[in-house]
């Protein structure tokens, strides 16, 4: 389709945590070219100092997310043809995270919040106990299954305006992880999870804007998980009062 002579006009954000600006590059168009391919081409052919992050190139590792034309996307699986505005495309570091350099953000706050939201397994058995059979069709297991394909890419976190407005807000991915564990029959401490997600930065901050769900590249639904947590925290309050 696209001949080799065709050139893309690519604007890439260059800078660090002190500030920066967009710089323009020309990149030859190719068939089946991803946004990550475009960024790599610039780094390999125009400016070797361009910093960015990726690993798997197949949508597994969650390390390549960037803002593409103002919306967060996994760049390794975004065909540039699908997002081109004429011949133009802009690429910037993810929103809501500190920039290390150019397109690479510091994802520590995102991962720290996974732990803060109770996102660690609370074991119910020891190694000496027999393995507990789980019915994959049970309601709780089906609910937990809806969130387990999260690749920690932070696309939802970058899309969320509530994260922008409140630095303590745990964010869609961490809360969805908490909801997964809450529904996991092998997790022994549901109350700890509910306590972790109902504090100041917890699930009740969410205004159900749904940007997380709209942009999640794996088509997960953090907005639904958060609604579930809101309900679970509220009903547990009534239960405890009895």
């Amino acid at each position: 389709m696209s001949s080799d002579k065709e050139e893309l006009e690519v604007s890439i954000w260059r800078g660090d945590d002190a500030g920066g600006a967009f710089e323009d590059y020309k990149v030859p168009a190719q068939d089946s070219q991803t946004v990550l391919d475009v960024v790599s081409w610039v780094q390999q052919n125009t400016d070797p100092t361009l910093s960015y992050r990726y690993a798997c190139r197949v949508g597994m590792c969650g390390s390549c997310a960037m803002m593409v034309n103002g919306v967060p996307r996994w760049t390794c699986r975004t065909h540039v043809k699908k997002v081109l505005d004429g011949k133009k495309v802009t690429v910037a570091p993810l929103r809501n995270l500190p920039v290390i350099k150019d397109l690479a953000t510091d994802m520590d706050p995102f991962f720290d919040k996974w732990v803060k939201a109770g996102g660690v397994h609370h074991p119910s058995k020891t190694r000496d106990d027999p393995i507990e059979p789980i019915n994959p069709k049970s309601i709780a297991r089906s609910e937990a299954d809806t969130g387990i394909e999260c690749i920690n890419c932070s696309v939802c976190y970058a899309a969320c305006d509530t994260v922008t407005g409140n630095a303590d807000y745990l964010g869609p991915a961490a809360l969805q992880r908490a909801w997964t564990l809450y529904n996991d029959a092998k997790d022994a401490d549901q109350q700890t999870i509910l306590d972790a997600v109902s504090g100041n930065g917890g699930c009740h901050n969410c205004h159900s804007q749904g940007s997380c769900t709209l942009f999640c590249p794996n088509e997960l639904n953090p907005m639904k998980a958060i609604a579930g947590l809101k309900r679970a925290t509220a009903t547990s309050l009534f239960k405890r009062k009895k």
């Binding site: 034309n69 205004h207 749904g210």
Partner: peptide, 11 residues
């Protein structure tokens, strides 16, 4: 751009 979708408008 990340805001131009129906549920954000509802918000």
């Amino acid at each position: 751009p990340h805001r131009s979708h129906p549920l954000w408008f509802a918000f």
